[in-house]
């Protein structure tokens, strides 16, 4: 059911053309942040307006859309964005990573490997990887122009001096094709390796900051590190208590006030898929039913 009061996918055609032109330039200069005339959307800035505008500019009526937040399809903001597109574009939706043609995400890359032809749209709060080192846009723009990324390396090195390792756990900066340093959005650094050489098109939208950037498929993306302190993708040292997966990113859930906790896949589609295939974790309620 689509809402006839608004244009297909909400945005007017001129706005979509403007975003589409920005997307093509973003693909042509991987990792470079293209300014675009971000519009006020009917959801707040900081809640995915950049991703929503990118998705709106990309969707066709034939698409199958999946929306996740923190890896889950049923988190409230994911529900809200999915409903927005059901209402304004009338597109089919799914929770299955494999069935989706367009996936809008906040803070995760799905566990199920993406394929050619899929588009992954990231919601980005602060697109500028240098922002917390240099608050001025006029300065950081110059730094990208001159490839002056020394400040970033100094910051990472100071971490090592103080903590013995790089103390950045999410939004871990990457370098794209040896040129632009890029913020991968606040995904856990566990997801960073999936950015590189990915068969899908990865698009990044930052609405409040009016920036779009992109990674074409099979783009080489390297997490910044040092020879003596190589990048390590880390996660909780547990297996999923529901599906038993040992290689997925986990959420920690506190189950009582005595310190009991369990670990579950943050990617709910991945976890339910594994459980449906018979995989069981330490605390799976299904394992009891079967027993």
């Amino acid at each position: 059911m689509s809402d006839d009061a608004y244009n297909f996918a909400y945005l007017d055609e001129q706005t979509k053309r403007m975003i589409r032109r920005a997307l093509l330039k973003a693909l042509a200069i991987p990792g470079y942040q293209v300014p675009f005339a971000s519009r006020e959307m009917p959801m707040p800035y900081g809640w995915g307006t950049g991703g929503v505008q990118v998705t709106a500019a990309c969707l066709t009526p034939d698409d199958v859309l999946k929306v996740i937040d923190q890896g889950a399809d049923d988190t409230t903001n994911a529900v809200s964005i999915r409903r927005f597109f059901q209402r304004t574009a009338g597109v089919a939706t799914t929770e299955s990573t494999a069935e989706a043609t367009v996936i809008q995400t906040r803070h995760r890359i799905p566990e199920t490997p993406l394929t050619e032809g899929q588009i992954l749209v990231y919601q980005v709060p602060i697109p500028e990887p240098l922002r917390f080192l240099e608050p001025r846009e006029t300065e950081t723009r110059k730094m990208h122009e001159l490839e002056e990324y020394g400040l970033m390396h100094v910051k990472l090195y100071e971490d090592i001096a103080r903590h013995g390792e790089i103390a950045t756990a999410y939004a871990y900066p990457v370098k794209v094709e040896g040129r632009y340093v890029m913020d991968p959005s606040p995904i856990p650094k566990f997801d960073n390796p999936k950015l590189s050489d990915n068969p899908a098109i990865q698009l990044f939208g930052a609405g409040r900051e009016s920036r779009i950037y992109a990674l074409p498929p099979y783009t080489q993306v390297v997490s910044l590190d040092f020879e003596d302190h190589p990048f390590r993708a880390s996660k909780a040292d547990h297996a999923c208590d529901l599906c038993g997966a040992a290689e997925s990113y986990l959420d920690e859930v506190i189950t009582d006030d005595a310190g009991s906790r369990m670990f579950v896949c943050s990617d709910t589609d991945f976890c339910t898929g594994r459980q449906a295939a018979g995989h069981r974790g330490r605390l799976s309620p299904l394992s009891k039913e079967i027993a």
Binding site: P186, P188, K189, S234, A236, E252, S266
Partner: peptide, 11 residues
């Protein structure tokens, strides 16, 4: 909004 993925990484 939920940030438990980032928070977990920090944790």
């Amino acid at each position: 909004l939920p940030h438990y993925v980032d928070f977990q990484a920090e944790l």
